[in-house]
Design a protein around this nucleic acid. Structure first.
Lengths: 205, 205
DNA sequence: GGACAAACTGGAACGTGTTCCTATTCTAGG
DNA sequence: CCTAGAATAGGAACACGTTCCAGTTTGTCC
């Protein structure tokens, strides 16, 4: 059954590739982001990505074995950038809940400002099966660590099990809220509300 | 933009159809469930559904305008059955948290016993866009009411805003956990654990 | 520089969701 | 019973993800 971790290719290319390979990979991801920003999930067509990245279709599939891998890898790159940007800026808010809410709302706002892109990446994330496990796990870790860092900005080493559990629950709610928004079931305001309510329920101290 | 609520057909057929139409609709959903149980999301191929339901492809599309609509409608029917079955049986557990956990674990176990079917239905649910809003909303309401009923079995009318908010958060976590399990990222045990942790965090009284 | 392997190109081909069209069958109203 | 209109059958056609292949270019080792 489909529990093959077939991302060996992209990983290899990612880590050991020549300059030309790194450049191709970057061009492909850039094209992916551009097309997704413009037209969302449906607009990220493999032939279009290949053409815009100036790469043959077969080569595209050599770097990313499926459209889902492609989009999740793009998500991973974007998320790493977001996380790095967040690392620099100070976190406002006195209570833990305030800080978490601020960070999540800031991030959510950033994603909502590029709705089509977010739709494409979120869809891919939700549709990814076990063959994309590595990339998915990476994103999940980034999110959790983003949250715990905000929760315990000083003594990040002394996280309790409960802290981590809370961060994970918040991550789950955030994901559900995002899916609701992406699929047009919730407005942006409702999405923010949904997250805020969850955080206040979980962090009342 | 795709924000058309194009489910008028299936709704009409559902509510006002002749006996023959109700029968066709049932045959189609039965075929969908059968194929999904056997081979999951990928095995629910529109041509196969049509053939097994003894219906032309065009007719299938007349009843359900897309594969996603088809699967979400199937999910809705299954969920209504689950909810009805749950209504009869008494809820075990002394504390609120215990009851909620029991219900969720029971439901989750039921879904995990037909993994392929659950995979198909969950995938469809996560992929559904605004055009399936009506059906999705229905399922969400069922889930929330299922949870609040278990939380306040006696005085179900006196639900506080917080009760409903908690139920929604739990629903979000359940959905995320389900997606994690369906996509092969979490084991069944981890899924149950994930839900239990969230419930205990949210219902500590 | 030459030889070999790996990577890339260009494009054909296949599967499945979706659309469309024509002929046939069913259903309701007279 | 007859007829107009709706619903269905049967199947061709199209779009896009994916696979595959033959020929060419690139990179590496001697």
């Amino acid at each position: 059954m489909g529990v093959r971790v077939s991302s060996a290719n992209s990983l290899t290319v990612d880590e050991l590739g020549s300059a030309a390979q790194r450049d191709r990979r970057k061009r492909i991801l850039d094209a992916t982001i551009a097309l997704a920003s413009q037209g969302g999930f449906d607009a990220v067509q493999m032939r279009a990505v290949a053409e815009q990245a100036d790469v043959a279709l077969g080569t595209l599939y050599r770097y990313f074995p499926s459209k889902i891998h492609l989009l999740v890898s793009a998500l991973q790159r974007e998320f790493e950038r977001t996380e790095a940007a967040l690392r620099d800026r100070p976190v406002e808010g006195d209570t833990t809940a305030d800080r978490v809410i601020n960070v999540l709302k800031r991030t959510t706002r950033g994603m909502q400002s590029d709705a089509k892109l977010t739709e494409a990446l979120t869809r891919a994330f939700m549709f990814a099966d076990a063959s994309v496990q590595a990339e998915i796990h990476q994103v999940g870790m980034l999110l959790t660590s983003m949250l715990t860092r905000v929760m315990r900005p000083e003594d990040h080493d002394e996280l309790t099990e409960e802290d981590v559990a809370i961060a994970k629950v918040i991550g789950d709610v955030w994901l559900s809220a995002l899916v609701g928004w992406v699929t047009g079931r919730n407005s942006a305001a409702e999405t923010g509300q949904q997250i805020e309510v969850a955080v206040r329920l979980l962090l009342r101290d």
